[in-house]
Design a protein around this nucleic acid. Structure first.
Lengths: 291, 291
DNA sequence: ATATTATATTAAGTTTATCTTAATTTAAGG
DNA sequence: CCTTAAATTAAGATAAACTTAATATAATAT
């Protein structure tokens, strides 16, 4: 049994004539006759009472026609849907490097959900290098990470937003200039495995400043806490200071010129990118106005 | 797009491999690969991301798989239903000659309805000759009529029940024997177009009795009424006398030997009969115990 | 009853679709 | 880099589905 045979069966019922059904289906009457013969043979049951002209659907045949209408409608609806995939559906999987705090991302994801209700969205956190490999392996549609990033020919880097870094020190530190402040007290280093940590490290090395490292920490919050307790100085994204009691801290722009960390979306290059990631990026751009 | 392609698409999703899907479907991998190519070409949209091995369903493809499951399940259910038409459905149309009063028929129809809830039943009354022609033209599945009936090679006569005929006369008629009673008073004839009327006519002619016809009437009830009014004598099915005040009437068995009218079901012969009529007849037999 | 007509059926040939086989390509893993 | 397994592609083989032409037949007209 196949869809074409069902189509023919219904047409015979509607037109009450093999010949008229054939005409409606752009076939010859012989084709219609043979189709019905083949269908009956396949099913091993008669569908027509052929003692009249035209043949009449028997009780069973008439029953099958009614059921077949539903099946055919659904099949046609699926074919239409398949031909015009207009509505975005599926699962977008985005990796996010640990510590990315930009409010842009949640806003973009919210807007995506609203615009494409059938789109499933998943955010998976991880370390930058892991995320990059997972994008390559197509396990992720894209990943949000921070620079620095070694340019790779198979990856595309799409800028999303930037954020200034600042030196933080206890209020009691009086030295002028960021280099002097960093050397005035023990240095609380942000883990170099993170993009920000690495950016800070590179900047310090290139400036020729010799800091006295006290310890290495995994998060900007820890660093801010220790600085407030008077145990040293550090460098953190300025956003991390929101809500803090700035009366107890000094903040000085970090670097010459001041360094900003960039949040970027990486995707596969060379037409290997995921359609869903492209949609996500468009959403981000519309929120930032392209800045 | 066809059902086989949908089947293959789903198998690829479930096995995550063209080769394994091919094995499950008893095809070669090349056939699977070509089917998917053909499907994408027909729909004019890609369904797979082919930059990996095995190819992965893209978002759109995965979405179509989910919809396709429903369509395929319904198609399969219809094929199963079509192959085994176990449950009786459809419309049984039975003709009934005017005046058939046997309680068997309503009882049989009631039992049929109970046994086959999806069976539609229609009873259409008419004159015997009309009904016979309509059975021939397959407009009726069968017809209930009374004998006599001229045997016809294309019609099958299935006996259902019999009923005695009686001569009815006013109490004042004293003659002995049915023949004398019929000639003692004017004869009230039942219309010969009905089976009973014809049966009565034939029996009288064959007996050599010369009745004096007063008038011809269409129903047994009219005859009984006129007899009670003293206007003549007649012949009616004995069932018609139920509830009548028999103190005012004489009743004598009609014919030598006594004549009984038969109610029969006629159907087309030579394997032209309707399945539904056969079911109806079986029901009648089970109610009569075959008598 | 016979003749006519329109339509379904059947047989045979043609066209199209779908499969298999064999060679080639390619992603993935060692 | 090499190897392997699996997907792809081209070409041939097979099966399915159609058309054409002849035949059969129910229905209708005379």
């Amino acid at each position: 049994m196949n869809i074409q045979q069902l189509r023919t069966l219904i047409a015979i019922h509607d037109h009450r004539s093999f010949a008229d059904a054939a005409e409606a289906l752009f076939l010859t009457p012989a084709a219609v006759s043979q189709q019905m013969r083949n269908l009956e043979e396949d099913l091993q049951v008669p569908l027509f009472d052929r003692a009249t002209r035209p043949p009449r659907l028997n009780a069973h045949g008439a029953h099958i026609v009614e059921q077949a209408r539903d099946v055919l409608e659904r099949f046609n609806a699926l074919a239409d849907l398949a031909r015009s995939p207009g509505e975005i559906a599926g699962t977008l999987i985005i990796g996010s490097a640990t510590g990315i705090t930009s409010s842009l991302v949640p806003r973009a994801l919210g807007a995506l959900r609203e615009r494409h209700p059938r789109l499933q969205i998943r955010i998976e956190e991880g370390l930058t290098n892991d995320l990059i490999n997972r994008v390559r392996r197509r396990e992720l549609d894209g990943a949000l990470i921070t620079e620095p990033l070694i340019p790779e020919p198979d990856l595309q880097v799409l800028p999303i937003t930037t954020e200034p870094l600042v030196v933080v020190a206890p209020k009691s530190v009086r030295e002028r200039g960021w280099k002097n402040v960093l050397t005035a007290r023990p240095f609380l280093r942000l883990n170099r495995k993170s993009g920000v940590g690495a950016l800070i490290d590179v900047t310090i090395r290139q400036s020729g400043v010799n800091v006295t490292e006290a310890m290495e920490l995994d998060s900007s919050e820890s660093i801010v806490g220790l600085v407030m307790a008077g145990l040293g100085v550090g460098v953190v994204p300025s956003r991390r200071l929101r809500g803090e009691n700035l009366d107890k801290l000094r903040t000085i722009p970090f670097g010459t010129p001041p360094v900003r960390r960039k949040v970027v979306l990486i995707e596969r290059n060379n037409n290997q990118g995921s359609d869903l990631a492209a949609i996500f990026y468009q959403e981000l751009l519309s929120l930032t106005g392209g800045d």
